[in-house]
Design a protein around this nucleic acid. Structure first.
Length: 892
DNA sequence: TCTCTCACG
DNA sequence: ACGTACGTGAGAGAC
C-alpha cells in the first residue's frame, strides 16, 4: 500500500517569493479597501496549482513567529542586514493564514523558532511514522532535510515552477554530497542574505570541493595541519569560529518543542462555501468566476460571476438589425484552426453594447450585398476586432474586403505589454480585469479535444461575450496607449502594418516544387551514402540524429574527450564537433547533419506547405510575439532560409517570381543596428564613420587597435572589430567576446575597455539606459515601443545581468524594427499610388523581397532605395543595397 | 512536452 | 563567485 502523504509548507519563504514575484505590479493588486493582494494571489495560485492536486493526508503551513529566535540569541547579527519587511507584505500575513485555513490546512508557528525548524521537526516525526513527506519551500537550505522519505520541492523562478529534490538530485547538484552535508557547505560558504559569515574567499564551488575531500567541517579542522600552506588555509584557521557558528546557524532543528503533533494535521479539503466571501473581500474576481462556473452561487454586490448576455441568432430574416447598428461595431470571426490561410470560418458575431449582438454559423450572411458585408467594407463604420490580420485574411477568402478597423484588441494588448504573449482573447481580457468572457480552451477544449459546440446557444453566447469584451476594453486600453505615448505607434505603424502584412501573406511567394524534388533525390542519395560511411566508422549502426546515442559512441566507445556538457548529457553541437575534426567520423557527422537539416527542414518542410491551388507558400507573420518589436514568421518560417553555406543557399533557387519574365528584387539595410546605435548614443566617432560612408568594422578596428590612417586594416583585426560591434549591440561581456573571437578573457576585456574609451558616447549611453530601466522599469525604442524589464533590480546576478543586456539591446533591435516597418507601409502605399504591378513578398528583419516585372525594374530599384533610406530621419544616413535575379538565390 | 540542434537577422 | 552575447522557428529524439 502506498504510504500516507504529509505535506509541509514553508509559509514565510513562499509568501516572500510570491510577493517579490509580483513586486512590479504591487500597485495593480489592491482590493477595494486598499489591501495589497499580490502575495495573496501568488500564494493562492500555489495552493491551487500544487497543494490541492497533491491531495495530502496531512498538511501544515509553518510560519516564523517573530524577529527574535534562538539563532539571534546565538548570533546577534543573524539576518541583521535584512531590509524591514515591506508594509505591503506585512498586511497580507493575516489574510494569508486565513486563506490557508480555508484551504483546509493547519497553520502553526512557535516562539523562538523559524518556520524551517517546525518543518524539520515534523518532517522527521512524519518519516518515523511511515509518511511520505513533501516539503514545499523557496529556501534552498531546506535541501538538508532530504531523505528517502522526505522530498523537498524548491520553487525556481516565480513560485509555480519547482524542482523536486530527492537524495539523487541533491547529490547531482552538490557534487555527490549527501543532504546532511549541505550544512557543512553552508558553514564554510556563509550566507550573505542571512548575514552570517562563513570563511572569507570560500564560495559554493570551493566549499563543495572541501567537503568532498573532508566530509565535515570538524574533520576538515582535524586534518588542517596536513593542508598545503596557502591563503585559503590561513583563512580557514583564522575564521574557524565563524565556520562552526555558520554551520550551526544553517542547521535546521529537528527537535523543536512543538505543541502540536501529527494527529492535529489532518487535511480538511477546501472549504468552498467559506472561500466565496473571502475571495469577495479580496476582489479575486477570476477565482469567483471559476467557482461560479463550477456551480457555486455567488451573491452580493461584489459578485462577479458572468453577467447574462443576450446574443440573438442572425438569419436571413432579421438582417435589418445590422442596418441599425450605427457607426461602430464589434466583430469577431471564429475559425477552426490557427492558420487562417487554411482554417475554415465556422461562425461570426457582430453588434455593439447599445444594439445587442448577433451571431450565426451561416457564412452566406457575410457575402456580397448583404447588410453585414456593407457594414464590414464601409470605412466609415468603425470596426473593433481581435486580431485584425487574421480577420482580414479570412474575410478576404470569403471575398469580403474588410475596411475601417479602429481597434485591434490583440495588437493593443501586445503594445501595452510585449511580455504578455498570451494570444487568447479571454485570457487577455482577464488580465485587463474583464471577466465576462471565458477562454477558448474553457469553451472549445484543446488539442485533439478541440471542438466548437454543436449547441447554438453555447456557441453564440461565447461569440457574443468575445465581441462584447472587445468593445468594452477599447476605451480603457486606448487610454493606456495614450498614457504611454504609444497612440502614434499604434495608429501610424502597427495598425497600418497589419494590412500590409496581410497583403504580403495573401500574395505569398511561388516555390518551384520540381526544383525542390530534384534536390531531394540527390540529398537522399548522399545522406544514405554518408549513413553507411558513419556506420562503418562507428563499427555498428545507430541513430545518427540522436545526440544521446552519438554521445555514447563518441565519448564512451571511442573515448574522445567531452568538451562540453548539456543538462542531460554530452553536448555534440557543431562548436564541439568542429574541435575534433581529426576524427574521420566527426567530419562525416557534421556533413550528415548539414544535409539532413536541409533535407528535413527546408526541402521536405517547404514541400509540405506549398498550397496546391497556386504553387505558393503563404507564411504568417506574427506581429504580436517578439519582445523587441521584430516580426516572426511561421508556417513556414521564411525568415531563416539558408544563406551562409552554399549547399543550403541552393534552397533559394526554388523561390521564384509568380510570372514568367519577372525578377526577384531584394533590398537590405546595411548595418542598420549599428547606425541606430550611432544615432541613439550620439557618439561622434561612430556617427562620423557612417556620415563619411566608411567601412564601419575597419573604422572600429583602427580605433581599438590604434592603426594609423596610412596602414591598411588586416582581415583578422577587422573580423575582431566586427565581433566587438556585434557584442556592443547585444550587451557585451568579456566572456562572450572571448568565446566569439577565440582569445582569452583578459584580452577580450582589454578590447572592450579600449572600445568604450574610444567611443565614449556609447559608454555613457549604456550606463544611462540601464539607469533609466532601473528607474522606470522599462526601456523604449524611437517609436515608443516599450519593453518591461522585471529583473532589472533582481538580486540574482544572472537575472539582473540578463535584464541589463536586454536594456541595451532592445532599443537598438526594436528601433531597427520600427524603421523597416515604416518603410514597408510607405512602400505599399507607393506601389498602390503609382499602380505598379510589383509586389512586396517578404520581410527578413533588415531586408525586403519583391517580385518585379521587367519593365518596372529600373523604377523599383530607385523607389525602394529612396523609400527605405528616408523612412526615418536619423542623425546618420541609412544605407540600402538592392540586388535582382531570376530567383531569390540570384538576387545577391 | 521538453531538450537538443541548427537555420536566419 | 556568479555564468554569460540579442532576437526568432522547426525537426527529431526521448520521456
Amino acid at each position: 500500500m502506498a504510504k500516507p502523504k504529509l505535506l509541509l509548507i514553508d509559509g514565510n519563504s513562499l509568501a516572500f517569493r510570491a510577493f517579490y514575484a509580483l513586486i512590479n505590479q504591487v500597485d495593480r493588486f489592491v482590493n477595494h479597501e486598499g489591501l495589497h493582494t499580490n502575495a495573496l494571489v501568488g500564494f493562492n495560485n500555489l495552493l491551487d496549482g500544487i497543494v490541492d492536486p497533491f491531495k495530502p493526508d496531512k498538511a501544515l503551513v509553518a510560519w516564523d513567529a517573530g524577529k527574535t529566535t534562538f539563532r539571534t540569541n546565538t548570533y546577534d547579527d543573524y539576518k541583521g542586514n535584512r531590509d524591514k519587511t515591506p508594509s505591503e507584505l506585512v498586511e497580507q500575513f493575516e489574510p494569508l493564514r486565513k486563506m490557508v485555513e480555508l484551504h483546509g490546512i493547519k497553520n502553526y508557528q512557535l516562539v523562538d523558532y523559524e518556520a524551517d525548524d517546525i518543518i524539520g521537526t515534523i518532517a522527521k516525526q512524519g518519516e518515523l511514522d511511515g509518511f511520505a513527506v513533501t516539503i514545499v519551500t523557496g529556501d534552498r537550505d531546506m535541501r538538508q532535510l532530504v531523505s528517502d522519505n522526505i522530498t523537498v520541492w524548491l520553487t525556481k523562478k516565480g513560485i509555480t515552477e519547482i524542482d523536486k529534490y530527492t537524495p539523487e538530485l541533491v547529490a547531482e547538484v552538490y557534487g555527490g554530497l549527501t543532504p546532511e552535508q549541505v550544512v557543512e557547505v553552508k558553514g564554510l560558504q556563509g550566507d550573505p542574505s542571512d548575514n552570517y559569515p562563513g570563511v572569507p574567499g570560500i564560495g559554493e564551488k570551493t566549499a563543495i570541493a572541501l567537503i568532498q575531500a573532508y566530509n565535515t567541517i570538524p574533520e576538515l579542522y582535524e586534518n588542517i595541519d596536513a593542508m598545503k600552506k596557502s591563503k585559503r588555509k590561513e583563512n580557514l584557521i583564522a575564521y574557524k569560529h565563524d565556520a562552526f557558528l555558520s554551520r550551526d546557524l544553517a542547521r535546521i532543528r529537528t527537535d523543536a518543542p512543538l505543541q502540536i503533533s501529527l494527529s492535529d494535521l489532518d487535511y480538511q479539503g477546501i472549504q468552498y462555501e467559506a472561500l466565496i466571501p473571502f475571495y469577495q473581500h479580496l476582489d479575486f474576481k477570476q477565482q469567483l468566476v471559476k467557482m461560479a462556473n463550477q456551480g457555486y452561487t455567488i451573491s452580493g454586490e461584489k459578485a462577479s460571476a458572468q453577467q447574462p448576455i443576450e446574443v440573438r441568432e442572425l438569419t436571413a430574416n432579421n438582417l435589418a438589425h445590422i442596418e441599425n447598428l450605427g457607426n461602430e461595431v464589434d466583430f469577431y470571426l471564429e475559425m477552426d484552426g490557427e492558420n487562417y490561410h487554411r482554417a475554415a470560418a465556422v461562425g461570426f458575431v457582430i453588434g455593439n453594447a447599445e444594439h445587442g449582438y448577433f451571431a450565426s454559423r451561416d457564412l452566406e450572411l457575410l457575402y456580397q450585398d448583404t447588410p453585414v458585408y456593407r457594414c464590414l467594407v464601409n470605412s466609415d463604420v468603425k470596426k473593433n476586432v481581435f486580431n485584425a490580420k487574421a480577420t482580414y485574411v479570412a474575410l478576404h477568402r470569403l471575398n469580403v474586403p474588410l475596411d475601417g478597423v479602429d481597434f485591434d484588441l490583440l495588437l493593443v494588448a501586445y503594445l501595452l505589454d510585449v511580455n504578455d504573449n498570451n494570444n487568447d482573447l479571454g485570457a487577455l481580457a482577464h488580465e485587463n480585469n474583464y471577466f465576462d468572457v471565458a477562454t477558448d480552451e474553457e469553451v472549445y477544449g484543446k488539442g485533439a479535444k478541440f471542438a466548437v459546440p454543436e449547441n447554438n446557444q453555447d456557441f453564440f453566447e461565447h461569440l457574443g461575450r468575445k465581441a462584447q469584451a472587445i468593445g468594452c476594453l477599447k476605451n480603457d486600453m486606448f487610454e493606456q496607449l495614450k498614457a504611454h505615448e504609444q497612440m502614434a505607434l499604434y495608429t501610424d505603424i502597427e495598425l497600418p502594418l497589419t494590412f500590409v502584412l496581410a497583403e504580403m501573406e495573401i500574395t505569398g511567394i511561388t516555390v518551384n516544387a520540381d526544383r525542390l524534388l530534384s534536390m531531394q533525390s540527390k540529398l537522399i542519395e548522399r545522406l544514405s551514402e554518408l549513413e553507411q560511411t558513419i556506420y562503418q566508422q562507428a563499427g555498428h549502426e545507430f541513430n545518427i540524429q540522436s545526440p544521446k546515442q552519438l554521445g555514447v559512441i563518441l565519448f564512451e566507445e571511442m573515448g574522445l574527450k567531452p568538451l562540453k556538457k548539456t543538462k542531460t548529457g554530452y553536448s555534440t553541437s557543431v562548436e564541439v564537433l568542429e574541435q575534433m575534426t581529426d576524427v574521420p567520423m566527426v567530419e562525416s557527422i557534421l556533413q550528415y547533419r548539414q544535409l539532413a537539416k536541409i533535407q528535413s527542414t527546408y526541402v521536405e518542410g517547404l514541400l509540405r506547405v506549398i498550397h496546391g491551388s497556386d504553387s505558393k507558400v503563404h507564411t504568417r507573420y506574427l506581429q504580436t510575439l517578439t519582445q523587441t518589436g521584430r516580426l516572426s514568421s511561421v508556417d513556414p518560417n521564411l525568415q531563416n532560409i539558408p544563406v551562409r553555406l552554399e549547399e543550403g543557399r541552393q534552397i533559394r533557387t526554388a523561390f521564384v517570381p509568380s510570372h514568367a519574365g519577372w525578377s526577384i528584387l531584394s533590398a537590405d539595410y546595411s548595418q542598420i543596428e549599428l547606425r541606430v546605435l550611432a544615432d541613439i548614443t550620439g557618439d561622434p566617432h561612430m556617427k562620423d564613420a557612417f556620415i563619411n560612408d566608411e567601412d564601419i568594422h575597419a573604422a572600429t578596428a583602427r580605433r581599438i587597435f590604434n592603426i594609423p590612417a596610412e596602414v591598411p586594416v588586416d582581415g583578422n583585426m577587422r573580423r575582431q572589430a566586427k565581433a566587438v560591434n556585434f557584442g556592443i549591440v547585444y550587451g557585451i561581456s568579456d566572456f562572450g567576446l572571448a568565446k566569439n573571437i577565440g582569445t582569452d578573457r583578459a584580452t577580450a576585456k582589454q578590447i572592450i575597455d579600449t572600445y568604450l574609451n574610444e567611443y565614449a558616447g556609447v559608454k555613457t549611453w549604456t550606463t544611462e539606459i540601464i539607469e533609466f530601466a532601473r528607474e522606470h522599469g522599462y526601456v523604449e525604442t524611437i517609436a515608443h515601443r516599450r519593453r518591461y524589464l522585471a529583473d532589472i533590480k533582481a538580486k540574482n546576478f544572472n537575472l539582473r545581468s540578463f535584464a541589463e543586456r536586454t536594456a541595451m539591446n532592445s532599443p537598438i533591435q526594436g528601433s531597427a524594427a520600427d524603421i523597416i516597418k515604416i518603410a514597408m507601409i510607405k512602400m505599399q502605399q507607393t506601389l498602390q499610388a503609382k499602380q505598379l504591378k510589383s509586389k512586396m513578398l517578404l520581410q527578413v528583419h533588415d531586408e525586403l523581397i519583391f517580385e518585379v516585372p521587367a519593365e518596372e525594374l529600373d523604377i523599383m530599384h530607385e523607389l525602394i532605395v529612396k523609400i527605405m533610406d528616408s523612412a526615418v530621419k536619423l542623425s546618420v544616413p541609412l544605407k540600402v543595397e538592392t540586388h535582382e535575379g531570376k530567383t531569390w538565390y540570384d538576387a545577391k
